[in-house]
């Protein structure tokens, strides 16, 4: 498979106005696991005939972990530069596969002068599905027992619970909900810049607590929507030696694994 992903700079040079900017984020750009999600999502966009571009090397961290760690200076420095870049390209629509980027772009950039229509990739995929641009044949996932892990920043913080579930429904999986789901979803342990530091002293790591709950569901896959959740849950499975029993996937990867009827 070969796929050409344009940067905004390239698209602008070619006189193309992409319908959406794909905000990749640090994890999506650099983390080996999250890169797979980036590539999967880009492939789906391509297959559905969505014209998109990335900022590429002009993209910087949204500043979310710095802000939540308390470092407003670093946050403002990055946010203001990003807003300058986005405004320079007159970006209107943004889609991202990272709920933290999503939250910051959507809820925090407006106060700094960055006003965009921002959606999470699950919402974007659902709208493709609704408009008929994306057609999925269950196939690979039909009848499989899976559970879904709500990330805090997509679910509780931004009230997006339905889009990811609609996508899973379209894969014809057997979705088993955990007791702690939706508004009661348990954090994977990465938020608030915890991803980048050692845990405070305690009895257990948070991702282990969650991974144990998932293992208790007797499912073969847990669907996630966040690169940090992916890492945390995968580590949690490994810690219990369950990495071969319960697979941890982003929903876009699951969609790509099923049969997408190409519009091209």
């Amino acid at each position: 498979m070969s796929l050409k992903v344009n940067t905004m700079a390239e698209a602008t040079a070619e006189g193309i106005k992409p319908e959406v900017l794909f905000w990749v984020g640090c994890a999506g750009s650099y983390d080996a696991r999250a890169q797979k999600v980036t590539k999967a999502f880009a492939s789906i966009l391509e297959k559905c005939g969505v014209s998109f571009a990335i900022l590429g090397n002009e993209e910087q961290c949204t500043g979310d972990p710095a802000r939540r760690a308390g470092n407003e200076f670093v946050f403002q420095m990055l946010a203001i530069q990003n807003i300058q870049t986005l405004n320079m390209y007159e970006v209107k629509n943004i889609v991202t596969a990272c709920p933290h980027c999503f939250n910051t772009l959507k809820n925090e950039y407006p106060a700094l002068g960055g006003h965009y229509d921002v959606v999470h990739h699950t919402t974007f995929l659902q709208s493709l599905l609704d408009s008929g641009r994306l057609t999925i044949e269950g196939g690979a996932w039909k009848g499989k027992k899976i559970t879904y892990h709500d990330s805090c920043y997509l679910g509780r913080v931004n009230d997006v619970y339905e889009a990811p579930r609609k996508l899973l429904e379209s894969l014809e999986v057997e979705l088993l909900e955990m007791k702690r789901c939706k508004t009661k979803g348990l954090c994977c342990g990465a938020g608030g810049a915890q991803m980048f530091k050692e845990d405070e002293p305690g009895d257990k790591r948070i991702n282990i607590e969650r991974a144990e709950e998932i293992v208790g569901m007797q499912v073969e896959t847990v669907a996630a929507n966040c690169p940090f959740c992916l890492t945390m849950l995968s580590d949690g499975m490994k810690a219990q030696d369950k990495q071969d029993d319960v697979m941890v996937y982003d929903i876009s990867e699951m969609i790509l694994q099923s049969n997408i009827i190409s519009k091209q």
Partner: peptide
């Protein structure tokens, strides 16, 4: 103290991790 390298990476490289690769390198690997 764990946060210091993260802040430094963000300030200097615009990313949460200090990386030597280009941010857009992944697109050449699809």
């Amino acid at each position: 103290p764990d946060w210091v390298p993260m802040f430094t990476a963000m300030e200097n490289g615009g990313s949460v991790w200090q990386m030597s690769d280009e941010r857009e390198k992944w697109r050449t690997e699809i």
